[in-house]
């Protein structure tokens, strides 16, 4: 780097940062839309529906209703993450072996850019009483079933939606791996299963971690799928927040659930965190 005599330009820019007037909008944004909203959520969590200062919301949260809700939300998010991982890992693995892998990856990602509502809506038709899923069940002799508004449909649709988000980070970390390591492992007599278990999987674990992070947190907080597919049952923390804010209008309780959701999110991110920069550069996360 040329850091010799010509520090003038750098200084000119650096001096700017001591009076960064061009940064005012950005810092204003941080203050107003990053810090203030979180502070407001915490603040509101201490008020009840008629505006009295209280700890009741927290007490309520630890009552059986909300504890059961939290547990079931975690259970669903866990199931969704596990199934997504089971589908996504082999896909990512085999994708790295295709000839035009970037193109194939792009094709995998494109569905993730299609609006979530539309994909969910498609399943209202597919899983409907006269939809293709039921026609298939009828054809193989099982007969019509109520598929919509069941746990199965909720988990299936969620897994469908999250698959690309899980594939992307796993693909990236598998793709970054040095192929010589695999050759070495095979040369030293490891079977392909042992190579996978002892070499490939541990080396690509960071991709799995970011994938889990990218699926688990939204799975806790999604409310669209539960509303449209799971038939108005409140089964995730996200649905509960939406319900409290927009239906019951109890912002205090909604904020309290949101506070806990933020806490869970931080814990999950710490558990799945990693030093290097995560692979969320392209593809939509949320």
């Amino acid at each position: 780097m040329t850091r010799g005599l010509n520090l003038t330009g750098l200084k000119a820019m650096r001096n700017n940062s001591s009076r960064p007037f061009y940064l005012i909008p950005y810092y204003l944004w941080i203050a107003l839309f990053v810090i203030a909203p979180i502070a407001l959520i915490v603040y509101y969590s201490f008020f009840d529906i008629s505006g009295n200062l209280t700890f009741d919301n927290y007490k309520n949260f630890f009552s059986s209703v909300y504890l059961r809700l939290t547990l079931s939300s975690f259970w669903y998010a866990f199931l969704i993450t596990v199934f997504t991982l089971i589908v996504a890992y082999p896909t990512a693995y085999w994708l790295t072996k295709t000839k035009h892998k970037q193109l194939w990856l792009l094709l995998i990602i494109i569905p993730s850019w299609i609006n979530l509502l539309l994909k969910t809506y498609a399943f209202i038709g597919i899983f409907g009483l006269y939809g293709p899923a039921n026609r298939f069940l009828k054809a193989i002799g099982i007969g019509e079933q109520q598929i919509l508004f069941t746990d199965f449909s909720f988990i299936f649709v969620s897994v469908y939606i999250f698959i690309p988000f899980m594939i992307l980070p796993i693909f990236n970390s598998l793709d970054k791996m040095n192929p010589a390591l695999i050759d070495a492992s095979r040369d030293l007599g490891a079977s392909s299963w042992v190579t996978f278990r002892r070499v490939i999987f541990p080396l690509a674990i960071n991709g799995v971690k970011s994938g889990i992070q990218a699926v688990f947190i939204p799975a806790l907080s999604l409310f669209v799928i539960t509303r449209l597919i799971a038939g108005n049952k409140v089964i995730t923390l996200g649905t509960a927040i939406e319900q409290q804010f927009l239906v019951t209008q109890n912002w205090g309780m909604g904020s309290t659930i949101a506070v806990f959701l933020i806490l869970f999110m931080i814990i999950i991110m710490m558990l799945t965190g990693q030093r290097d920069k995560g692979g969320m550069a392209n593809g939509k996360i949320k």
Binding site: V34, Y44, G238, E242, W251, L261, I262
Partner: peptide, 19 residues
Amino acid sequence: NNILIVSPDVIIGASFLIL
């Protein structure tokens, strides 16, 4: 900067509504 990227939509929506 990255807080809003990782925050779930419900939380962004709810907190902005309060704001």
